[in-house]
Computed example of a mutant assay.
Amino acid sequence: MLARLPEYIDPLHLADKRGELKGQIPISSLDRLADVLFNETGAVAVDLFFGREGRLAKVEGQIEAVLELKCQNCLQAVQWPVKSAVKLGIVTSLDQADRLPEDYEPLLVDEEKILLKSIIEDELLLILPAFPKHKHNCLAHKQGNNKVDFLPNEQQSPTKNPFSILAKLKNTGDL
């Protein structure tokens, strides 16, 4: 086990040595996540085990973080806890990827060393919601310029029916 996570790893070498990576990656270093994040503070806890099962080189473990995403309703911060199991089969070709067991996702390695943060970032992007939003109705009390945009609990005046003129004509027999 390493005290500090390396930037680049050789997954096949780690699998042969039955290596373990345990540590944290700063969220600010995950560039592809920047668009969905409200704030880039904090870190992703990484706990990965590399090994072999027969001919299959594999990575198993979990990642855990609390991300601050942009709510797609109010555009404010929403805390999004993430805890995900990682189960990857290390492959060097698409043919090998097709032969992986069903419960493994492929980790395609075309060079010896790959960025560890890329693996973590891919896993996070796969589990994040397309439209993150608060569990409560965050638009209910949104105020801007001293006015309330939407209050669902207040009684609203009945909307005028655009066909009310036709109803009057029908009742008078003019149709």
Rank of each mutant, 00 (worst) to 15 (best):
Met1Ser: 07
Arg4Asn: 03
Leu5Glu: 04
Glu7Gly: 04
Tyr8Phe: 02
Ile9Trp: 01
Asp10Arg: 09
Leu12Cys: 14
Leu12Tyr: 05
His13Gly: 11
His13Asp: 14
Gly19Trp: 03
Glu20Gly: 04
Leu21Trp: 05
Gln24Cys: 15
Leu30Gly: 12
Asp31Arg: 15
Leu33Cys: 04
Val36Arg: 05
Phe38Ser: 15
Val46Asp: 00
Val46Gln: 05
Leu48His: 03
Phe49Gln: 08
Phe50Thr: 05
Phe50Met: 07
Arg52Met: 07
Arg52Val: 03
Arg55Met: 02
Arg55Thr: 15
Leu56Gly: 04
Gly61His: 02
Val66Ile: 09
Leu67Gln: 10
Gln72Met: 01
Leu75Arg: 14
Gln79Val: 11
Gln79Asp: 08
Pro81Asn: 03
Pro81Thr: 07
Val82Ser: 04
Val82Gln: 12
Lys83Leu: 01
Leu94Asp: 14
Asp95His: 14
Arg99Ala: 05
Arg99Met: 10
Pro106Ala: 10
Leu107Tyr: 00
Val109Phe: 13
Lys113Ser: 01
Lys113Pro: 04
Leu116Cys: 07
Lys117Gly: 01
Ser118Leu: 00
Ile119Tyr: 00
Ile119Gln: 05
Ile119Phe: 00
Asp122Gln: 02
Glu123Arg: 10
Leu125Met: 10
Leu126Tyr: 00
Phe131Val: 14
Phe131Leu: 00
Pro132Gln: 13
Pro132Met: 04
His134Tyr: 13
His136Pro: 15
Asn137Met: 02
Leu139Cys: 07
Ala140Lys: 14
His141Lys: 08
Gln143Ala: 15
Gln143His: 15
Leu151Ile: 14
Glu154Trp: 11
Gln156His: 15
Gln156Lys: 11
Ser157Lys: 08
Ser157Trp: 02
Pro158Glu: 15
Pro162Met: 06
Pro162Thr: 08
Leu166Thr: 01
Ala167His: 07
Leu169Ser: 10
Lys170Thr: 02
Asn171Leu: 09
Thr172Phe: 08
